[in-house]
């Protein structure tokens, strides 16, 4: 009996260890909290910080602009920041907040915004 309890407890402990500390959020919600500030509520680059940026934030609704970037570039820009893909340093690296899966969902969300 003791052995069974021990096994159950061990499994529970392992489960806790594996559970990520951060809770996965929907791409729409991540976009609102983290991207609106520069890219704006419509995604067209009109965020409240835009005027302070020497490089205009990318217009996520422009298919022409968005098609210039591969999914890999977009993923890297979000994860590692703009500088990692030779873009603006005002785009910070989001990997301390967004998981790889959340970033993959964000790439899909951006495709919806540009309809491309």
């Amino acid at each position: 009996m003791k052995k069974v309890s021990l096994i159950v407890l061990s499994i529970m402990f392992l489960g806790l260890m594996i559970t990520p500390l951060a809770i996965a959020e929907k791409a729409e919600d991540n976009y609102k909290l983290y991207c609106f500030q520069c890219h704006g509520s419509k995604g067209s680059g009109g965020g409240i910080n835009a005027a302070a940026l020497s490089t205009a934030p990318r217009d996520h609704t422009s298919a022409t602009e968005m098609k210039k970037l591969s999914d890999k570039d977009i993923f890297t820009a979000i994860k590692e920041g703009g500088a990692a893909v030779s873009k603006s340093t005002f785009m910070p690296p989001w990997k301390s907040i967004l998981t790889d899966d959340e970033i993959k969902d964000m790439v899909k969300h951006l495709h919806k915004l540009c309809n491309c």
Partner: peptide
């Protein structure tokens, strides 16, 4: 790019 989100002067810098 800290000034993109933070005002480092009373009249310049980001506001979020």
């Amino acid at each position: 790019g800290c000034s993109g989100c933070h005002r480092d002067k009373a009249d310049s810098g980001g506001t979020s």
